[in-house]
């Protein structure tokens, strides 16, 4: 990895971010996931909670104990334990195959984005239905996955202007990543597909199904098939097929 990583930084007054890469990459993601898991195992009394972002691990500390040097040293010692970039992904990972309408008036930015990516419709859809993208992190809103990486052609920037609300369960993309929105939200990401998969549904026994390390791929459907799925979707599964990933 680059000279300066991994590195530690403050997040606000009570948080520490251990960053493994500046660029999005799968090794940086694996490192961040494994490092957070290892720290959690050690049960440090100053740490109130933790989470992962794409290539970093975040730790929120007890604000009454101002981040003393001792905890920075503790993170530093754990960082030195091994080469985190070659870490294995978490165990018990699952593959989610999610039915999705690409383009049409349900996902109006599809045509523009494939033009930016210099792909035909068939090429683009083939990528979405054959590539398995890794859930790199869950965040923004409940259960919402950031998945990647798509090939470099998909390195399209976010929009400068935040769009009007994009519906719940929308598939959006930018900078080689995909997100399925947990809730209707304004966004700078490009709306390229529409699913009926609810990342968070409190009617389910397990409101949140996706975990970092899981994989997502898509099954192309047409708008009337989506309407069919939506007509019987109180569990918010949206026709997803979930299978174990054998490693």
């Amino acid at each position: 990895m680059t000279d300066n990583f991994p590195k530690m930084n403050f997040v606000g007054l009570d948080g520490i971010l251990v960053q493994f890469s500046q660029e999005i990459c799968e090794s940086g993601n694996s490192a961040a996931l494994a490092f957070r898991q290892e720290i959690e195992k050690k049960n440090h009394p100053y740490i109130i909670e933790s989470s992962n972002s794409l290539t970093a691990a975040y730790f929120r500390l007890d604000i009454k104990i101002s981040p003393a040097d001792s905890i920075l040293n503790f993170f530093d010692d754990v960082l030195k334990e091994k080469n985190w970039y070659t870490s294995e992904l978490p165990l018990n990972r699952k593959l989610f195959k999610i039915p999705c309408v690409f383009g049409t008036d349900l996902a109006p930015q599809f045509e523009k984005v494939i033009k930016l990516a210099k792909l035909s419709r068939a090429q683009a859809i083939s990528e979405f239905t054959t590539t398995k993208t890794r859930v790199m992190t869950i965040g923004f809103s409940p259960g919402q996955p950031y998945a990647g990486l798509l090939s470099e052609k998909w390195d399209v920037p976010r929009l400068a202007e935040v769009s009007k609300n994009v519906p719940k369960s929308a598939l959006v993309c930018a900078i080689r990543q995909l997100i399925i929105f947990s809730n209707s939200t304004p966004t700078g990401w490009h709306h390229i597909g529409q699913t009926a998969f609810e990342c968070f549904n409190s009617n389910r026994q397990q409101p949140i199904l996706l975990n970092p390390g899981d994989e997502i791929t898509f099954l192309e459907i047409n708008p009337s098939e989506l309407a069919q799925i939506k007509s019987n979707n109180s569990d918010g599964l949206g026709g997803v097929k979930i299978s174990e990933i054998r490693t």
């Binding site: 606000g12 948080g15 972002s53 794409l54 929009l159």
Partner: peptide, 19 residues
């Protein structure tokens, strides 16, 4: 600004949107 990696947000952050 439009290609920065998404990362942790906490209450109190002052975020700059696209413009």
């Amino acid at each position: 600004q439009l290609k920065i990696l998404s990362d942790v947000i906490v209450p109190g952050d002052i975020q700059m949107t696209g413009f």
